[in-house]
Design a protein around this nucleic acid. Structure first.
Lengths: 228, 228
DNA sequence: GAAACAATTTTGTCAGACATAGTTTTAGGA
DNA sequence: TCCTAAAACTATGTCTGACAAAATTGTTTC
């Protein structure tokens, strides 16, 4: 079995070989040319691709740094999303089944440690919300703990990265970042349901939470359509 | 307001200006160099990036074709997914809720035209399978028609690209590419259920199909674990 | 009309050069 | 000694030119 001769594979081998970790600097392009045996522009095409995927960050004069773990067992998936008034809604449509499935798996598979973490995160979220502060980070941490407990890292990665992509874009356009304001109190019930093993109830609550977000997203979409 | 001077924006403007649609060929790289005023390697970096995102497909000698609609309002997001030991199974875990939700939406929202397309694709799939030929492409076309009918392009994009990522890795290692051999006959029932509006039945059938794939994936995972 | 061959087109890759933005080193002065 | 400013260096960004290789297109021949 011979190693495939293409730039991404060669780069990954070099990274593993040199033991490069997230935050480390990659060798400069000219050194990569020497060590990998490819032309500079060919190597650059891969590096640029990785940059667009958030695997590395590049700065003129400064160099290229690893920002995500890569290995031979890393899959890089790219998708394009049309930015329309209703794309926020569409994204929730996709998020709903993923979140529900993650909650079901978490209810079924969570260890007792993970149940404690979820309860703690939920308590933090409620406290922050009660205090009237920005609860988005706490909300994300709570949901992360659920995805973690599902036992399948793909859920967290998918949901997180889809959401991150949208946040980058919708930060400026809408002045309404706090989608799902009214759903916070429901999170207590959700946490209880998960921890007590009530799978169907937990799934139903998750659906309700996202329904509420959808309703708000729809209002925004209608506002935007009316404005055009 | 001046137009931003970067390759992606310029390319999108050119595509809109020329009225290029999905399936059309882009001008050759050297013509793009003339018309856009960038160097060839710079333009290639963007085209390569778009290729990795599934926006265009490129073939030596043949040219570059549009495979996804692009416009100034298109967002391109990249995901990274770490591949774990039993990732084939994990991937099915993620695919299941997405497929089921897409089927539900399709059952609810499909136009009569889309129902006809789904029936036709299903018939093609059954015919190919009956003939004992490679049915994977036909299978994908059938599922694509379902995702299309869901009215939310994110489903198709997510499922398709996740699967593509896995195919790249699992092509060689296993000599067993035909996952879900026995599920093909069930597809006829699924198509009927969708077209006749039986949402719950369609969802149940989809779940069964993926369960079957999961079972086979688990067998493979155990084989692999046993071997190590 | 069909098959085989030749010419053209188009992407893939490499090499070299210069520009530009950070980073590091050095020199100078309080 | 310590801080600042300039110089030198490093690394990415971009452009040009050249050739290779694959696919398509056109031409010839039977």
């Amino acid at each position: 079995m011979t190693a495939p001769r293409d730039v991404p594979s060669a780069l990954i081998r070099l990274i593993e070989q040199d033991g490069l970790e997230v935050g480390d600097r990659l060798p400069p392009e000219l050194e990569l040319v020497d060590r990998l045996g490819f032309g500079r522009s060919t190597i650059r095409e891969t590096l640029k691709m990785w940059e667009s995927m958030g695997v590395v960050s590049r700065n003129k004069g400064a160099g290229t740094r690893l920002t995500e773990e890569v290995s031979a067992k890393t899959i890089r998936v790219a998708l394009i999303i049309r930015q329309e008034a209703d794309s926020l809604l569409r994204m929730q449509e996709v998020r709903r089944p993923l979140e529900i499935e993650a909650v079901r798996l978490a209810t079924r598979n969570a260890t007792s440690d993970q149940r404690l973490v979820m309860k703690a995160r939920c308590a933090e979220l409620l406290a922050v919300h009660q205090a009237g502060e920005d609860w988005r980070a706490a909300d994300q941490r709570f949901h992360n703990s659920i995805h973690e407990a599902s036992g399948n890292p793909l859920f967290r990665q998918l949901i997180e990265q889809i959401q991150a992509g949208f946040n980058n874009i919708y930060e400026a356009p809408f002045g309404r970042p706090h989608l799902g304001q009214d759903t916070i109190p429901m999170h207590r019930e959700l946490a209880d349901a998960i921890c007590s093993g009530q799978e169907d109830l937990a799934a139903r609550l998750t659906g309700q939470i996202i329904d509420q977000v959808c309703t708000e997203a729809q209002e925004i979409a209608e506002e935007l359509n009316g404005r055009c």
